[in-house]
Every structure is written in C-alpha cells, then in structure tokens.
Amino acid sequence: MSLVEEDLSRRFPTPVPVIISAVMAVFLLWLFGWYGLLGFVVLLLLYVMPGYTLLDLLKLSRSEKAFLAFPLGLLLVSLGTFWLNLVIGSMRWSAVITVVMIMTAGILLKTVRR
C-alpha cells in the first residue's frame, strides 16, 4: 500500500462494517419485516450493550468482548430484572432500570479510572 493509499484508508476507514450492518438490516427486514429489525435492535440495546460495558471494565480483548457480550448481557439483564421485579413489581421497568444502572455504572467507573 502506498503512503497516499495508507493515508486515505486512515481518513476513510474501511467500509466493511458499515456495508455489513446495512446488509444485516436489509436481510432482517426482508426475513422478518419491521418487527424483526426492531427485535434485533432491542437485542443489541438490551443485552449486547450491558454485556459489552461490563466486559470493557474487565479489560478483555476486543474479540473476547464481542463474543462474550451477548450471553453475559442475557444473564445480567434477566438476573437484574428478576430481583428488581420482586421489589418494584414491574418486569419492563425492572429491565429498563437494570440496563440503565449497568450502563451508568460502566461509564462512571471508566471515567473514574481515566
């Protein structure tokens, strides 16, 4: 790769993740319709993000975080929802509070570490 090409590739990062995300979205839309796409977004927000946040604090590698985030998020959110629900009596609010708490704690701890 020439220096010019290298410079260009830095300024314009590889479009692969963008293309793949777009293909995924179209695929889900085609396969399951809007609710499929919405369901997938819910999975990312509800499970992948909290899982990733926790693993980020534990300083695992990027690929490890990518693969472990989803199952760990499934555990964290369902566990938090279960116990909080015993206190506040609403499953959906328990889930929202669980996710917000994990994300907030993650961001705060990361900021403090810096």
Binding site: Y35, L38, G39, V42, L43, L46, Y47, L74, V77, S78, T81, F82, M91, R92, A95
Partner: peptide, 12 residues
C-alpha cells in the same frame, strides 16, 4: 425473562 423482554420491547 430474556424471551419475555424481547417480546415486550420488540412490539409483537
């Protein structure tokens, strides 16, 4: 719970 939440927030 995980299944229920995606049903709840997924709108269907």
């Amino acid at each position: 719970i995980d299944l229920a939440l995606v049903q709840e927030f997924g709108g269907d």
